[in-house]
Deep mutational scan, measured.
Amino acid sequence: ETIMEVNLLKGPKGLGFSIAGGIGNQHIPGDNSIYITKIIEGGAAQKDGRLQIGDRLLAVNNTNLQDVRHEEAVASLKNTSDMVYLKVAKP
């Protein structure tokens, strides 16, 4: 597993990826991690090219996303300014 830091500039459609996982909404049984499950065509993440489906999202800005509820992860992604710092684990 490789840890990678990505600074992503939000586009008109936001960050351009979808997530799944978290406490109460496990993407993988027994694993509370938050995973990237979709990269949106023409979105910021696709244009940047570094994020991939299956990457594990560890942090957004200063918010640690390990062992959080799905709703908390979504809220932390929404409550960001235009430049967003992401910390991901690549499988």
Rank of each mutant, 00 (worst) to 15 (best):
P91A: 06
A44D: 05
A20D: 11
V68D: 02
V6R: 02
G14H: 04
A20R: 08
Q26V: 06
L8N: 01
S81A: 14
G11K: 08
N64T: 10
N64R: 11
V74F: 15
I53H: 06
Q66P: 02
Q26M: 09
R56W: 03
R69P: 09
S18I: 08
I39N: 01
N7K: 11
V60M: 09
I39K: 02
M4F: 11
A73Q: 01
P12H: 05
L57I: 08
K10E: 05
E1A: 05
N61R: 02
Q46V: 13
S76M: 13
P91V: 07
T2H: 07
E5H: 08
A45P: 01
D82W: 04
H27L: 05
Q52T: 09
N61K: 03
I19A: 05
E41Y: 07
G30W: 04
P12M: 06
N25L: 11
V68E: 03
D48F: 05
I36F: 02
H70Q: 08
T63C: 05
N61P: 00
A20W: 11
M4L: 06
V88R: 01
A89I: 10
H70E: 14
V74I: 08
G43N: 03
A73I: 05
S81R: 15
V88S: 03
K87Y: 04
V68F: 09
I53E: 10
N62H: 15
L8R: 00
V60I: 13
A44V: 08
K90G: 10
V74N: 06
P12Y: 04
N61A: 05
L58H: 04
G30Q: 06
A73T: 03
D82P: 14
G49C: 04
M4C: 09
G42Q: 13
H27S: 12
S18M: 15
L9T: 13
I34H: 03
R69M: 15
E41G: 08
L57M: 08
S18A: 12
I34K: 02
M4Y: 06
E5F: 09
S33C: 12
K87S: 09
V60K: 01
L15I: 05
D48R: 01
L58V: 14
G43C: 10
N62V: 08
N79P: 10
K13S: 06
R56K: 13
L65T: 07
I23H: 10
G21R: 03
P29T: 15
I40G: 10
G49S: 06
K78P: 02
M4R: 05
I39S: 01
E5M: 15
H70W: 06
L65K: 00
D82H: 15
E41C: 06
S76F: 12
E71R: 08
I53R: 07
T2W: 04
I28W: 08
Y85T: 11
D67F: 10
T2I: 15
L65H: 01
K87V: 10
V84D: 02
D55I: 03
P91N: 15
Y35G: 00
P91S: 12
L58T: 14
K47A: 13
G42F: 08
I3M: 11
Y35T: 06
N32D: 08
G22V: 02
I53S: 11
A89C: 14
L9K: 10
R56Y: 02
R56G: 02
A44P: 13
N7R: 11
I53F: 12
K10D: 08
E71D: 15
K38W: 11
K38N: 13
G30D: 06
L77C: 04
A75G: 10
V6S: 02
G54F: 04
P12G: 10
G42C: 07
S33F: 08
K13W: 09
R56L: 07
S76Q: 13
L8E: 01
T80V: 12
N64H: 14
G21N: 03
A59D: 04
E1S: 08
I36C: 04
V60L: 10
I23D: 08
E5G: 07
G24P: 09
Q26Y: 05
